[in-house]
Amino acid sequence: MALHRIAAVVLRQFYLLRGSPARILPLFAWVAIDMVLWGFISKYLNSVASAGFNFVPMLLGAVLLWDFMVRVMQGVTLAFFEDVWTRNFLNIFATPLSIPEYVSGLVISSIATSSVGLVVMILLATLVFGLSFFIYGAMLVPFLSVLFLLGIALGILGSAIVLRLGPAAEWFIWPIPALLSPFAGVFYPLSTLPHWMRFIARLLPASYVFEGMRAVIARRELSASPLLFGAGLAVLYLLLVSWVFGRVFRHAVRTGLIARYTAETAG
């Protein structure tokens, strides 16, 4: 892989962000609104629930972790959509840029953009609503890591879907996090779910993170193996969707879809 070509993909994203408030604002505005909304809900629940139970780390912490994953996913898909919106596939894929380099550029762009959202969320949650990250301890690192890997995997999958089905398929991608959240058990234990939903939940790395988070907050003994299994699933999905993206790209090159992408189909 050539670093200068990966840098080109990242630099394009930097130029676009630098010159566009419409791109900078969403990096932190929606997650900040979520923090404020769930911060007040948590405070209200603290005031009406039995004394001694703190909803802030349970609810606000969960929203923070979930929003981080969503921002990571959107960091990848939005960087990819820039090429869709500007009809740039022919220009960039006629260069020596390889698919691993292109995807690496998207991932690095996502790390940068999602970090902005994460910092804003941490500042709001700690300074305004008193969320202490000490309660999660060292487990915060594996929690964030698993969600980061899942976010990247979902972002690459979303990009592959749009590359395969055309620009209009963008609207399949935005609701993916909302579709997954009931299964991930962001706000409730998986035992709340009916059996068929629990089965799907077990296939989602995020569900192991939120179960682990609740165990840590409740000071229950946390077994490392479920979280390790979740991390393994996230790595597996990342490898799988990278392979899928490569396949979709080769299909697009074979059928001529890259050269006439706006037609949405090569047929």
Binding site: H4, R5, A8, L16, G19, N91, T95
Partner: peptide
Amino acid sequence: APLPGNLTVQQNLRIFGLLYG
């Protein structure tokens, strides 16, 4: 195949210059 319209001339040339090494 026009170059992306939301980047300046210099930015486009820099990005493609990096892509071509």
